[in-house]
Design a binder for these strands. Structure first.
Lengths: 342, 342
DNA sequence: CTGAAAGCGCTTACAG
DNA sequence: CTGAAAGCGCTTACAG
């Protein structure tokens, strides 16, 4: 009883479990159980502990729990961008999937940089995460080494892995690029340009799909491709429209690697007096909200980003629990949204 | 020496500091210092420890460090949304400000919900954060109690606190709302509508500013106000345009509480054949990227969201270090962006 | 500059 | 169902 102190603990200045236990008149570990595994404690003691927790304003120390249990309840999520609506939707899906469990989600923004990804991973690995959600399949050697050494379960999001041992949830970026290009070809376009920015692995795969379709149709022409490493923005789309029309003035359709670019290209056409789609068809990728509302509305590829996050988190949780997942490679597909702009 | 094991630690399955120390032939605490305070260790020993770290692939256990040092190096950030570009910009500013330091940033998305904010805060408080960055000034009683009991330094973002003891970084939402409304009045508009969604505290303050300006000009009319709790989206803007024109058919200008709504309203005007700004002026708030590019380009309020994050994090860091900040209330202002739509 | 000891606040087997 | 003991992997004063 005399262990009840001032209500302030020691080093951390916080109430400890031992103080709660003393206050409730039980052993520390009974208090621990009353909190973590309430079913294993008699209702009477449980109630006393709960009351002590409330009276003392006890806040568990997560570091102590993690250290003692060798279990962090942390899940790390690495995304390349937070300003891209695609990844914020992925995050929303992850949050929803993990909401019931007591996981702490560590969100890292790699900003499309290998160095940043390495840095974040090395820091987050210090938290001994239960699992990791990664964006994309291609990572630097150091990242792969750290990941392998950590023995932490990983699920890759956005695209599908070739080997089934690697857990992945997404859709074929290449097939989506191919599908959109075929759509434009089937509409009768013959001079179809491709505008790619950021040049992350997903954009590169979409470009591959574009090239495949163009090759098959005998329509390939390097002048029709504009690829730049800058981030995808509306402003860049406007600029690249000018670049591609300079490079291929007879261009009759443009496949933009994502919607921001397509929006910028369309706004720029409006300023230049180019009729979309009559003179120039323009389509995008990802189906951002504005695409359905702009005038003209934008033809694009709808992507299941929320579901990617949700299913990836669900899959990861299954693996963390030691259960065997029904599938290790979950293809969520994509949808061609045919609208006015192409 | 015989302490060097298989390279695998015990419970956590990881290499420990003790193993690193044994490998380097030094005491555990010398190894600890070589890593945390390298200046306090002789170059020779430091090199041996560093080599041991590399050879063994040592990853520090953050939970153990936090527990022993009673210092988490965690900073909690609570934002109401991740799909709103305003808050992702705030986060980018925070990241940049804290990049050099070894902080782990815990990002929580409260989804504009008090209950969710309480839940996240109670979980994050378990990590014993060094500091907290909060969005807005108004919080539930439980949140205020938890915050007070925690004794953790807090900086509020987005708006300015009335009491100087409360650290805050942002700008006056009310003044911004007033400024935009005055602008419309000065342009000769007399039937100025206000469309508000989400109805978080910032929107409410902007509405207050709108009302003040309208009152002063003797132009107030409740039929000119549409307030709904739904999240701000382009789709909602399109819908609310219809609602306000039904409520006040003679409306000659609309102040949308943010850009998404303004975009939707403008797209809807285009579909209905209403000329913007000739028949109806429309303006927004926040200056999202599309606002500068749309046709017509959108008159709006430019807000210093990136800088809010950056300065708030910088202020918090100052306080955490025990230093006295130059100012406790940092007004970053706003900018009226007069463009084509109003 | 270097080190042996104690302790951070929990949980995990192990008994009873 | 309940509890005394040991230990998780670090760091913090305190000596030398």
């Amino acid at each position: 009883m005399s262990k009840i102190q001032t209500g302030k603990g020691r080093a951390s200045g916080r109430v400890t479990l031992a103080e709660v236990a003393a206050h409730a008149g039980v052993a520390t570990m009974t208090a621990s159980r009353a909190i973590s595994q309430p079913d294993m404690v008699s209702p009477a003691l449980r109630a006393r502990v709960e009351q002590a927790v409330a009276e003392l304003g006890y806040v568990p120390n997560r570091a102590a729990r993690a250290l003692a249990s060798a279990q962090s309840n942390v899940i790390v999520v690495l995304v390349p961008s937070l300003s891209n609506a695609v990844f914020t939707a992925v995050l929303a899906g992850i949050q929803d999937a993990l909401d019931a469990d007591n996981y702490q989600i560590l969100i890292g923004n790699t900003r499309y940089s290998d160095a940043e990804e390495e840095k974040l991973l090395s820091i987050y690995l210090q938290s001994n995460p239960d699992g990791i959600l990664l964006s994309g399949l291609s990572h630097s050697k150091r990242v792969r080494q750290m990941l392998a050494a950590s023995h932490v379960p990983i699920v890759s999001m956005m695209d599908l892995a070739s080997e089934p041992e690697q857990l992945s949830v997404g859709f074929s970026q290449q097939r989506a690029g191919y599908t959109m290009t075929r759509y434009l070809i089937d509409k009768g376009h013959t001079r179809i340009g491709f505008i790619g920015a950021q040049l992350d692995e997903r954009v590169l795969k979409r470009a591959e799909g574009y090239r495949k379709a163009m090759d098959e149709a005998g329509l390939s022409d390097p002048r029709l491709e504009i690829m730049v490493g800058d981030p995808s923005t509306i402003a860049l789309g406007a600029e690249l429209l000018g670049r591609i029309l300079a490079s291929a003035p007879d261009c009759d359709a443009i496949f933009c690697c994502n919607d921001d670019l397509a929006h910028g290209a369309i706004y720029q056409c409006q300023r230049r007096g180019i009729a979309v789609p009559e003179q120039l068809a323009i389509c995008g990728f990802n189906d951002l909200p504005a695409s359905a509302w702009m005038n003209p509305s934008v033809t694009t590829i709808g992507t299941p980003r929320y579901r990617i996050g949700f299913e990836a988190a669900t899959l990861l949780r299954t693996v963390i629990r030691g259960e065997t997942p029904a599938a290790t490679r979950i293809d969520l597909g994509f949808t061609l949204m045919a609208r006015e702009s192409a």
